[in-house]
């Protein structure tokens, strides 16, 4: 009798368990199904279930993340398109000025009525114009190749001393012409993660800037200092300086500082330099007191010990 009762209870319990389990599984699958339907319908309002502390909520949360990643990819593509468009319009605008100068002086030369001094003057202006165009073309090509990732920087552990001294030699002539002295504080050579060619290019840009905005007979100081994660390469000039509210803007493409009016430039050098540093996990910071000094600090990652 007792045995029959136990068996009956056991059977009932088993069937109940099976029943409940079936319902649970069905419910879970239904919920998963709903979540997936939401993903398919690109519905980001799966919110209710994502904010509870349950298995399903975690799943929903992940589904939403996947969806957001897709949305992000799409919006990034659109954004890139816009960047390219604005880039082209900026660029054509920047090229117009030297180009129209060249066209005008060529026309004047073709007309022919002028003194020899005037002729020489026009020719030298054309030369300046074409040089500027040439420099812009070079920078633009580098920039676009870096931006679209056509060139991969390959940061490897290499001594930084050589890279810095290469850059110093590159601007030495321009500095000497205006009697500006370049002073490098002594430092121990160290291995930093960097792509020598491109990093050299970026440091040269920063140095060229320092030379450009330094007064004649001035000096430029270069120093290197190791921090726990990065090593800092600083270049200080004692020229016009940059106001704090411009510190964020000067690294942007085609941005010319307020103090840079009247000095030749296209707003590309700093942008290119900061792009190069970013591409290898570094960065550039500026600090300045207008009328006193400007320090550009370039940071490169130390090699892991």
């Amino acid at each position: 009798m007792a045995i029959t009762a136990i068996i009956a209870i056991a059977v009932i319990l088993c069937s109940l368990t099976v029943l409940f389990y079936r319902r649970y599984v069905k419910k879970a699958f239904d919920s998963i199904d709903r979540v997936l339907d939401g993903v398919l319908a690109r519905n980001t309002e799966l919110s209710l279930e994502a904010a509870a502390d349950s298995r399903l909520s975690k799943l929903t949360h992940k589904a939403i993340k996947i969806m957001q990643m897709n949305v992000l990819d799409i919006s990034q593509t659109t954004q890139e398109k816009e960047i390219i468009q604005s880039f082209i319009s900026d660029m054509s605008h920047q090229m117009k000025t030297p180009l129209s100068g060249v066209a005008m002086y060529t026309d004047l030369l073709l007309e022919g009525r002028m003194t020899e001094t005037e002729r020489q003057e026009f020719l030298s202006r054309i030369k300046t114009g074409t040089e500027k165009l040439q420099w812009m073309m070079d920078s633009l090509v580098k920039m676009s190749r870096l931006e679209v990732g056509a060139v991969e920087l390959s940061p490897v552990a290499a001594g930084i001393k050589q890279t810095i001294s290469d850059s110093i030699s590159a601007v030495y002539g321009a500095a000497a012409k205006r009697n500006i002295s370049l002073q490098t504080a002594y430092f121990e050579d160290m291995a930093l993660l960097h792509d020598r060619k491109w990093t050299g290019e970026a440091i040269t840009n920063i140095l060229e800037n320092a030379v450009k905005y330094s007064p004649s007979d001035g000096e430029i100081k270069i120093s290197v200092e190791a921090l726990p994660i990065y090593t800092k390469i600083s270049v200080t000039d004692y020229g016009v300086g940059i106001a704090p509210d411009e510190w964020n803007s000067i690294f942007k493409r085609f941005y010319r500082g307020r103090n840079a009016q009247g000095v030749a430039g296209a707003g590309l050098g700093l942008y290119l330099a900061s792009l190069i540093f970013q591409k290898q996990g570094g960065y550039i910071l500026v600090e300045s007191k207008p009328g006193k000094y400007t320090t550009f600090s370039m940071f490169l990652q130390n090699c892991k010990k």
Binding site: L72, L227, P228, I229, Y230, K232, P244, D245, W247, N248, Q278, G281, G282, Y283, L285, V286, E287, S297, F299
Partner: peptide
């Protein structure tokens, strides 16, 4: 140390594609 930590913050947020909002009173 600020410059060092800041660099790390920027590098990691770029690498892991994160949106970052940072509060500061320091222009640098």
């Amino acid at each position: 140390t600020s410059q060092d930590v800041l660099g790390v913050l920027k590098m990691t947020s770029t690498r892991f594609h994160q949106t970052m909002v940072m509060i500061t009173h320091n222009e640098q």
